[in-house]
């Protein structure tokens, strides 16, 4: 699994990433849910939500994570931010291992990374005005006076396209797109270096989606933010991400710079996923069947039960990620495929 450790540190199409550019590094990350049995129930097979995932995010880089329901993409996002404890693996943030940090030590770190969710109301207290929701974390993190924090809150609102008059409004009174702006402003209040955005535009109409994506792109560039952009929408990820990680049943299938992934997918799952996007030319058969249960994943390659190219050998071992191009890796043993 040597190749995995170097993920993202290989050549990058626009800016070759140096080792010191790595902001977040996770290695061998796994999360199993529900291992233990209860008083009267036998221990069931654990749900293997995330299995042996390694990836890096460089400073100022947007890494897209795509996958279907049950791929483990949201769990991965929560593990990276230490909102969940991993079953195995490490999370390194700015060269510091934060896997085992707890309590106050972890809270000190929390300021540097933030999360944006699909439902903006999920991260906002419904009984707190937007102003208070912004002022409170800034007083906490930067020991600002209320007046100073309020001035900064107005700045933040303007940065996301809202105005000072929105300070006194409650989260419920905002439309979906405006609500997401508020959630973004709140995420930026602690001046993070890294943001995990979990399906931030999935619930929005396409015209509003375009607005929020444009806002995220601008902020990301202006503030030099690193971002893990999690989405099931391949078209949105293509526009926003520098590199893309494809997950299936908790495992990484393929990683590549965006253009390479979309133009020359190397893994049969990526190819099938891209072909299923409406509006793309349909050459092959649709992917058959559905994602298997994560509590009983197939042996060997987890995709083999739906893969049109599976061989007997695919059931034997979990295929390791290996290089197929600059910064481009796949977890598939076949090299004779014309995708």
């Amino acid at each position: 699994m040597n190749a995995v450790a170097h993920l993202g540190t290989d050549t990058h199409p626009t800016a070759p990433a140096q080792e010191e550019d790595v902001l977040v590094r996770v290695s061998g990350l796994s999360k199993h849910f529900g291992t233990g049995g209860g008083l009267f129930t036998a221990a069931a097979a654990p749900v293997r939500a995330v299995e042996d995932v390694s990836l890096t995010v460089n400073r100022g880089e947007v890494v897209g994570v795509v996958g279907e329901s049950g791929s483990g993409k949201s769990t991965l996002g929560r593990l990276v931010l230490r909102l969940l404890d991993p079953t195995a693996g490490r999370v390194i943030f700015e060269d510091e291992d934060i896997t085992d940090l707890r309590g106050a030590a972890l809270r000190g770190f929390r300021r540097r990374f933030q999360m944006i969710f699909q439902d903006p109301l999920a991260s906002l207290n419904p009984r707190m005005t937007v102003g208070d929701a912004l002022i409170e974390p800034m007083q906490l993190h930067f020991k600002l006076s209320r007046k100073e924090a309020a001035a900064r809150a107005v700045e933040l609102l303007e940065q996301v396209g809202l105005s000072a008059s929105d300070m006194r409004r409650y989260p419920r009174s905002f439309s979906g797109g405006q609500g997401q702006r508020v959630a973004i402003a709140r995420a930026l209040a602690s001046e993070p270096k890294f943001i995990v955005a979990d399906e931030p535009v999935s619930a929005l109409d396409v015209s509003i989606q375009a607005e929020v994506v444009t806002l995220l792109q601008r902020l990301q560039k202006d503030l030099g933010l690193a971002m893990l952009f999690i989405s099931h929408d391949l078209s949105v990820v293509e526009v926003i991400a520098d590199r893309v990680v494809v997950l299936y049943l908790g495992r990484v299938m393929e990683v590549a710079p965006t253009e390479a992934l979309y133009r020359t997918p190397a893994h049969p799952y990526t190819a099938a996923l891209l072909e299923a996007v409406p509006g793309t030319s349909r050459s092959g058969e649709p992917l058959k069947g559905e994602i298997p249960s994560p509590s009983n994943p197939p042996s060997g390659c987890v995709f083999r039960t739906r893969c049109p190219f599976a061989l007997d050998a695919c059931a034997a071992d979990v295929p390791a990620l290996r290089d197929v191009g600059p910064g481009h890796q796949k977890a598939c043993i076949r090299d004779d495929l014309d995708l």
Binding site: V206, S207, I208, Q209, A210, E211, V213, T214, Q217, D233, S235, V236, E238, V239, I240, T258, E259, Y262, R263
Partner: peptide, 17 residues
Amino acid sequence: CIPRRDYDSDAGRTLKP
């Protein structure tokens, strides 16, 4: 508004809300 990336242009990642 439909996201479409054009790899041959600098503005290829821009959406038009």
